[in-house]
């Protein structure tokens, strides 16, 4: 496969795909990892993306936080690697 365009490799880059489903920006959310309990911004998680789908991993313990794939039936999403997600308004988004 030749898909070596430079691409973002963290949670910032999942904003488009998740925006399709949630109609809001997910990257500013704070998540707690179900694997190690560490807390951090969604945008700072590590992204492994391909044409098939995306996997988001915890930067601390490598736990799979989120998996997303496009299937013939629609977009499939597994977020069980997050214990929780907190959404706080940013100064620019009241």
């Amino acid at each position: 496969m030749s898909e070596s365009d430079l691409q973002p490799l963290d949670g910032n880059a999942a904003a488009g795909l998740l925006g399709e489903m949630f109609w809001r920006d997910m990257t500013t959310a704070t998540g707690i990892c179900a694997g190690c309990g560490s807390e951090g911004p969604f945008a700072e998680a590590r992204l492994f993306a391909s044409a098939m789908g995306s996997v988001l991993r915890c930067p601390h313990c490598d736990n799979v936080l989120l998996r997303a794939a496009r299937t013939p039936r629609g977009v499939w999403l597994d977020m069980q690697g997050f214990r929780s997600l907190t959404f706080t308004p940013t100064p620019d988004a009241n």
Binding site: S2, E3, A43, S50
Partner: peptide, 11 residues
């Protein structure tokens, strides 16, 4: 500290 990483996209 806010970061954005990029590199060659996966195959």
């Amino acid at each position: 500290i806010k970061t954005e990483r990029f590199g060659p996209s996966g195959g």
